[in-house]
Design a binder for these strands. Structure first.
Lengths: 113, 113
DNA sequence: TCAATTAGCAACCCGGAGGTTGCACAAATG
DNA sequence: CATTTGTGCAACCTCCGGGTTGCTAATTGA
């Protein structure tokens, strides 16, 4: 649960970056391509891409005069793993709680309260 | 992929809030309890808790003079779902790419580049 | 009843995030 | 060679996030 996870989540914690990440794939797109769909400046997009890169969610590759940005599944894995950990901790407390309240029935998943 | 997901991720995108969320369970803790472990002020913790609540990750319950904060698994589910969506999009492009490069073998998972 | 504990509210500070403009430069393209 | 296209860099602006202090209110417990 180090700063790495926080960085990945922070990178994903912006609507613009989420759409960027969603419109991206391993085949990659240039900054100009990515900018075309949005309402902000190319430089704005560049900054967002840097944040996503710092979070390990994307990577770049220079091709001629343009820079191609690809997705980086390992970054997603970090986020997924962190969520698992949190969920595990919560479930553990849930089990303990249920074992106390009801008699002895550790069964259901996380209650969607 | 609306603003909801962004809000959840943003809520998780801070080391202090990650530790808060990790040290929380359905049994709940008061603000003072939560503050005891950390190096920041009670008011600072309160602000973080508000952010987590806005993200749907925790919920509060007044008990006498103190406020008890519980986890809220539904919030985690939102984050998990958003990650799934992103991952699915990436894999789809991966499949397309592989189908083009190799001949016709849509098989493996996301390559950990 | 009086003191201690728990929490809320408001004001304030500071740095960085998100966004822009302007300019310079390299690579395609005709 | 001149022009278009794709990027990078730097400066700047504004606003919000994270954090604090100070004061007040309510509950609890001795």
């Amino acid at each position: 649960m180090s700063g790495e996870a926080a960085r990945v989540f922070a990178a994903l914690g912006d609507p613009v970056r989420l759409t960027l990440v969603a419109s991206l794939g391993p085949d990659g797109q240039s900054i100009s391509d990515l900018t075309r769909g949005l309402t902000i400046t190319r430089q704005g997009v560049t900054k967002h891409l840097k944040v996503l890169e710092a979070g390990g969610l994307i990577r770049s590759e220079r091709r001629g005069r343009e820079v191609i940005w690809h997705c980086r599944p390992a970054g997603l894995a970090v986020a997924r793993h962190a969520l698992e950990e949190i969920g595990a901790g919560w479930e553990q407390s849930l089990q303990r709680l249920k074992s106390l309240v009801e008699d002895q029935t550790p069964k259901e998943g996380p209650g969607q309260i």
